[in-house]
Write a protein that binds this DNA or RNA. Structure first.
Lengths: 214, 214
DNA sequence: CTCCAAAGATGTAGTGACTACAAGATTGGA
DNA sequence: TCCAATCTTGTAGTCACTACATCTTTGGAG
């Protein structure tokens, strides 16, 4: 019962602004759209936009929430499971969802808009760093035998894997690809994912008995 | 003979602005100093500042140039040398120079100022990404047997190592550390460096004969 | 139903980084 | 000596974002 008409209207306003902004950004590019234009298109005051979203970039990354996934997956993984496997599976789930027909076009537009704006790329880097920190924390939580240094390096390695695969995905999925090429790219991407996570696993720090120093 | 009085004056102006800006930033923090204040303190027009430095952040990172080091080291390394070793040695050289008495206090102020400003942290992330790309290019140049994917992942791994060690360095060198503690921290840092680069080496992709897939 | 207080939405005025551009000052060289 | 290139400056403006006062809506108490 906590949520009355007032809160509902507030959320509606927020959603409206977010939707309008996303549409404008995808249509004309992030930098080419001003916050004032978003406000006008949503028929609200500029101040109202900033009441709901601290920065312009937040309008774009609203409700993506992908940064929380990996750490959550680690926390919820079955006891004793290799963290790399957890992260790999989570990554595959996410990327497969993205490539599922119906979502692919949307994601591609989203990705293109992002890579065309330095501001959005900068924000993505920030989000990636925050993700890294939450992953490091989750790793330490699950395995107190890790040193902080090793946990942070492992998290950074996962972030590196993710970034490299993200680039590869963009490279393998050009805008003018045919259906068949996409299928092939899909397979190629799965292979690349396995390859990169394999490399991560090789560099995975031994935690308990084994030590890497000869 | 290329450089006459005109060019000399221009460089002087540039240097003056950079010096004044750095001093102000270290004294009062990056965000608390406006470009207009820098201009006034350097006795030039605001426009002149922007004639020499495209953004405010460039005033801070001017002439650090640390991002070019690793790729250059790879290109200039003796033929056949393990790239990881090249990168590790380069990193150690840089960090040792930083910790040499006389430079330590300066570096610490620099570091503190940077971590206190979101804008500077964002810029550092951007520079790190550019460094990563130049490293990947240098790796491919030296070893055409690498795939682009592996080169990029390797570069990302090095960047990850560098970042983690940077954090560790800040953690090990608190502002109120005694001389003795610093010596100990120094040793600890060398150990951490060896440890992290050891992990990087384990994840280093096999290039020619050997392959990681069993 | 009435009225009040909280909370959301709005408008105004401002700051600060940065751009475009026109005009002034300096300098190298003919 | 004088011109043209180049460096510097000043003006006006854009845009993200903040502070703050005011207006409007809503939920609830009487």
């Amino acid at each position: 019962m906590e949520i009355g008409r007032r809160e509902r209207k507030k959320q509606q306003t927020r959603q409206l602004i977010s939707d309008v902004a996303t549409r404008l950004f995808l249509e004309r590019g992030f930098d080419a759209v001003t916050v004032a234009e978003v406000a006008k298109a949503a028929d609200v005051a500029v101040q109202t936009v900033f009441n709901h979203f601290p920065t312009k970039e937040d309008l774009f990354f609203d409700e993506t929430g992908w940064w929380a996934g990996p750490a959550q997956a680690i926390r919820e993984a079955p006891a004793g499971q290799d963290p790399i496997t957890t992260l790999e599976e989570q990554y595959l789930t996410v990327v497969r969802g993205r490539l599922a027909s119906g979502h692919l076009a949307t994601w591609r537009e989203f990705s293109r808009t992002m890579t065309e704006s330095q501001a959005l790329l900068a924000r993505r880097r920030q989000i990636a760093e925050e993700m890294e920190q939450t992953i490091a924390a989750a790793l330490l939580e699950r395995d107190p035998g890790l040193t902080s240094l090793r946990a942070r390096f492992a998290a950074a390695q996962f972030a590196a894997a993710q970034k490299v695969l993200e680039d590869e995905l963009a490279r393998l999925m050009p805008a003018d690809a045919t259906e068949e090429e996409l299928t092939q790219a899909n397979a190629e991407l799965e292979r690349a994912t396995a390859e990169v996570f394999d490399l991560v696993r090789r560099g995975w720090p031994a935690t308990h008995g084994e030590d890497s120093r000869g």
